[in-house]
């Protein structure tokens, strides 16, 4: 469905995207993960024909985006990072404009109704886009991508700037769309990609760092050996006891969160789950554990882990 071959983009001397290749099968949801400035948007802009590539090829449905841009673009629904909304139009007239712009052949009224119902914007159809909340604007952005029912959807950071409830709504929507569309979705949030995508391509500094299934990736980045614990008791004693646990590599006392309750960062050897040991220590000294959670792995950690292939230390001072 989508085939990217050795795609490269230079801006002057700077390589924004450097020789990346990947394919997306029919009906697959591909997550494009990377920090800001990694080249996600640049890649998407090349796929949609907004900018040209310096070298390499992007094929949509077997059509080269540079050779036959109009036909290639007709297969794609695109939501750019900033949705291309005309603020002084109503939702309905804007979507009608997009319908005409894409020279859509579907029955107008029913298609329009389907799209608006799917994106849950039917109730604001007669309001000016500039008066809508960010969440509604984003959904109108998704709706314009859906007009014409294109087989490929390319969504650039569709949940950025939304509140948690809206994020869940958009994710549910994308999952539903993934059933009969091929979707590429970019994000810099790992959990988002994990929640929605079948497959993940991780991109960093313009090159692909990993291309894997979402479940396989999550296995790689489990953090059972890195925990944060809040324990009630005497700080020095706890620290000493925790350090005495077999297999711990690193223990650091953080701040006093509540009166008499301290937060600790504990890292054990990779693959060793030390949560039970911490509990055992606490029981032994009759301390109360008030919180125990795995440390989230940040995107930077994952890059380092995947690109350098090394296990990471926690509690780097610069992350505080």
């Amino acid at each position: 469905m989508i085939e990217v071959r050795n795609l490269t983009k230079h801006y002057g001397d700077k390589k924004a995207v450097d020789n990346i290749s990947f394919t997306v099968e029919n009906g697959e949801i591909l997550g494009f993960l990377g920090p800001n400035g990694a080249g996600k948007s640049t890649t998407m802009n090349m796929l949609t024909g907004y900018i040209s590539s310096t070298s390499g090829q992007a094929l949509i449905n077997g059509v080269d985006v540079l050779e036959d841009p109009i036909r290639a673009k007709s297969f794609i629904g695109y939501l750019p990072e900033i949705p291309p909304l005309y603020l002084d139009m109503t939702v309905k007239s804007y979507l009608n404009f997009v319908f005409d712009l894409k020279r859509c052949k579907l029955p107008r009224r029913s298609h329009m109704k389907d799209v608006m119902t799917l994106c849950k914007i039917k109730e604001v159809e007669n309001r000016l886009i500039k008066n809508l909340s960010k969440g509604y604007k984003q959904r109108v952005g998704v709706a314009q991508a859906l007009i014409g029912n294109p087989p490929v959807l390319i969504l650039d950071e569709p949940t950025v700037g939304l509140d948690p409830k809206q994020i869940i709504e958009i994710r549910t929507l994308i999952k539903r769309l993934g059933k009969n569309h091929t979707v590429i979705l970019s994000s810099h949030i790992l959990s988002e990609i994990q929640a929605v995508c079948d497959r993940v391509v991780i991109i960093n500094k313009g090159v692909i760092a990993a291309d894997d299934t979402a479940s396989h990736l999550s296995e790689q980045v489990t953090t059972d050996h890195r925990v944060i614990a809040r324990i009630e008791g005497e700080k020095a004693e706890i620290l000493q006891a925790l350090r005495a646990i077999e297999g711990t590599k690193y223990v650091r006392a953080d701040m006093e969160r509540e009166k008499g309750i301290w937060e600790f960062e504990i890292e054990a050897e990779p693959g060793r789950d030390i949560r039970r040991d911490i509990n055992a220590v606490a029981r032994e000294h009759e301390w109360n554990i008030l919180m125990l959670k795995n440390m989230e792995m940040t995107l930077e950690d994952i890059f380092l882990k995947i690109t350098m292939g090394e296990q990471l230390g926690i509690g780097k001072e610069d992350t505080k």
Partner: peptide
Amino acid sequence: KQKTEQGLLTAPVS
């Protein structure tokens, strides 16, 4: 300025 040109330029029109 409003970034709407991206919508036009990625639409299937010349």
